[in-house]
Design a protein around this nucleic acid. Structure first.
Lengths: 323, 323
DNA sequence: TTGTATGCGTTATCAT
DNA sequence: ATGATAACGCATACAA
């Protein structure tokens, strides 16, 4: 701006007025406006966002911090959030923590240092001191997919209890009595809720889970667990798997055991599988509205940033995809 | 810093000296150092990265701009780049352009405004004026997976010609004579190279492609194209598909036509398929080293940023995964 | 209609 | 061993 001002023998202020679109407000002459604009164009002026953000104490950027970018669920959420952010003139930075608490903490700190205007988080743990302090410090943030205990932070999540109940009901309707549950760690809210919804529905029908396996939500761990499960007698006739990786691991184990879906064993998994119809077996899933989740999360965050009143959170409805 | 200084009746300068770890250099007293550190701790001081970057004209952040975050190839590259960036104290921002030129341009501009220190790009088009100007302006950037025509920018890419040749050779060895090629737009370098490698290998064996289909690299377009292809007589006995989406679309079409792999038709696809063994059909693929690609891209970029001499680029070897 | 002065938080340079 | 000052690029209150 200084350079432009010098060339044009104007003050940087005038140039600023023009280039920030406040020319009219300051009654800058039409001629001056044009000259400034042309010169800015000619010199390839690019406003320094850093300086601007620094001055305004506002960076017009927010970040989405997720645990696993290789999970289609999260890439879906990321894309939804990004679209919404873009539509509101914000930039969304996507950060991957690989589900490690320490990395999550570091990432959030780093983002705070960078003075992002807000965060969309999916915390690894139910209760985290550093998040409490974040909240106290007043950094705007919202949660996706997972809640925090005892911390009134706006959230967007799928009704996991209902989703799991739908899954259970589907299996029960198909006549299954021995249904096993394989889910992730209890410290993660989604798994808690899915387990709760599952058992509740079984209970309504006077059934007990044929087995309850709580494992790390990785494909390999799931495959291992299900392998053991399949060897037991009597073998469960159906599985409910708690997330996409567990579903995949289970399919792997079933396939390795030379069994078949749904003849030998039936399976319903939480999270939809991309291109599920290319899989060897038909897998019914509980699908989440990923795009809507991302968009809604950003919308909530924007409200928090602008200091508007925000509803406590949004619950999205899951959808059973029967295959 | 000012607040800390006031509380301690010191100057901001001294506080800065301590908090940036330059205390020794400036011979700050041990007592003072401790007092400053304790106060910083107590007041929850967080250095303002924005101000710092502003002052230093260096943001210690870089961005990766890719077209399709739903593609496992790109998430793999992103994670590799992110790890390497983190290891060097940099932050990587991941930006998704959904393969739209206009969005790509906007994104890059935005990042430039934000004064990121460098970019890792995968341009939609072979030749782009705005990238030329970017280059002239001296913004450090490197390319992944795709090159630019006539612009000497460091790159990392898989040897696509060799990869495609491996695929063709594999099919030829299995006795196929009528092999069709289905690839993406010629304006994208990867597809050009893959086509070149494919035809070259066929040529060596005195064969001609049974068909050459150039389509949008989407699952649906591929399925449509392959559907038509399968209806032709004589039907090709094998397919070489140019990327992951095309492979998936082809599988879709094959399945819909009631055909089977490899009995009715054989297929080798570029890009590995995640959890390929869960698919209905065994699909041999040409796998790329995604993690290495991301890491190497960041390493190259860092060299450019630091003004070191940089090799012209890195060519990674593809790997045939026979299934 | 345009210009002057000031400050945002940090750090390098030079004093003291 | 510590402090004063200036500067980074921009936006704004206020002056002219």
């Amino acid at each position: 701006m200084k350079d432009i001002a010098e060339k044009l023998k104007l003050s940087p202020t005038t140039v600023s007025h023009v280039l920030t679109g406040k020319a009219k407000r300051y009654r800058i002459g039409d001629e001056t406006i044009k000259r400034v604009q042309r010169m800015a164009e000619r010199m390839g002026f690019q406003s320094n966002h850093l300086a601007r953000a620094f001055k305004a104490q506002k960076s017009h950027s927010v970040a989405l911090v997720v645990g696993d970018l290789t999970n289609p669920f999260w890439t879906g959420v990321a894309i939804g959030a990004q679209r919404e952010a873009e539509a509101h003139g914000y930039t969304l930075f996507v950060c991957n923590t690989e589900e490690a608490l320490e990395r999550e903490r570091r990432t959030v700190m780093m983002l705070q240092e960078r003075r992002v205007d807000g965060l969309i988080l999916s915390p690894t743990h139910l209760k985290e001191d550093y998040l409490e302090s974040l909240h106290k410090q007043g950094l705007p943030f919202v949660l996706v997919d997972r809640l925090l205990e005892d911390l009134p932070v706006p959230f967007v999540l799928t009704d996991n209890v209902a989703g799991a109940a739908m899954a259970a009901e589907h299996l029960i309707r198909r006549g299954h009595k021995r249904i096993a549950y394989i889910g992730g760690p209890e410290r993660i809210m989604t798994f808690r809720d899915r387990f709760a919804g599952f058992t509740k529905k079984l209970d309504e029908h006077g059934l007990e889970p044929a087995a309850v396996l709580t494992i790390d939500a990785s494909v390999d761990d799931a495959a291992e667990a299900v392998k053991t499960l399949l060897a037991k007698a009597p073998r469960p006739t159906a599985l409910f798997t708690g997330n996409i990786w567990i579903t995949m691991g289970a399919l792997q184990a079933i396939q390795n055991a030379g069994l078949s879906v749904p003849q030998d064993i039936d399976i319903v998994g939480f999270d939809d599988l991309p291109r599920a119809n290319l899989l060897r077996y038909p897998v019914t899933t509980v699908a989440q509205e990923v795009d809507a989740m991302g968009r809604e999360a950003f919308r909530l965050l924007l409200k928090v940033i602008n200091g508007e009143k925000v509803e406590r959170g949004t619950l999205l409805k899951p959808r059973l995809v029967v295959r």
